[in-house]
Amino acid sequence: MHAFRNILRIEARLYLRDLPTLLLTVGLPTVILVVLGLVPSLRKPDPTFDGQTFVSYFAPSLLVVTLAMVGVNILPAVLATYRERGVLRRLATTPAHPAALLAAQLVLALAGILASALLLIVVARLAFGVPLPRHPLGFTLAFILGTAALLSLGLLVAAVARTTRAAQALAVPLFLVTMFFGGVYLPRFLLPDVVARIGDYTPPGVQALLDAWTGAPPQALHLGIMAVIAVVAGAGAAKLFRWE
């Protein structure tokens, strides 16, 4: 516990030292939100979105940006680099276990995701009148399960990739697919219906987030799928992860 705390402190410092990446990770969704929110027509209620504004409709997709960046891109890249450079192996020779470093990275990933989501929700509320999530409990649950599913996939990538390059080769397509089905590249109402429906079930489960934020409680099936993905990918990662 003692070693974990010290490692977490140092790793947090290393993140803060890389300020551009940190700002991009935490702030990018909010920046996109602000840019879109400056377009007046996107702030008008529209029947396409059940009488919501486009900004409200699109906000959950913006949550996907940080989740995807941190979960399937940064986390596996950092872990694969630490393994390839022998950082984990060196730690294995000391009384501290390399799992402490992995845990510290997970905590930091969660912190980044949480900071980014809070910033987005608060700015959306204050600047563009997007209501706070209507179903706070359902939203929190959808967010936690979606995050868990993506982080587990990220860990699985870090587990099966032997090198940093291999991790990148797996992470980039996974990142693009997550962003695509999450409706980041093209808003979901413009996607063919079947693609949008697939997106309901790909992590982090953007439909559940949208439902809980602006409409009905999230559907149990949507949440259940995220839980299954989190557990299966997480168990796979735990089984396959190598420290060197």
């Binding site: 003692h2 070693a3 010290n6 490692i7 140092i10 410092r13 290393l14 030292r17 890389d18 630490y82 450079r85 022998g86 950082v87 192996r89 060196r90 000391t94 009384p95 501290a96």
Partner: peptide, 21 residues
């Protein structure tokens, strides 16, 4: 061929590792 994170400083590395013992 065991390295450390690029941004970790000399004193930080030693203080961290010292704390394990």
């Amino acid at each position: 061929e065991s390295q450390l994170p690029d941004r970790l400083r000399v004193a930080e590395a030693l203080e961290l590792y010292a704390s394990f013992y």
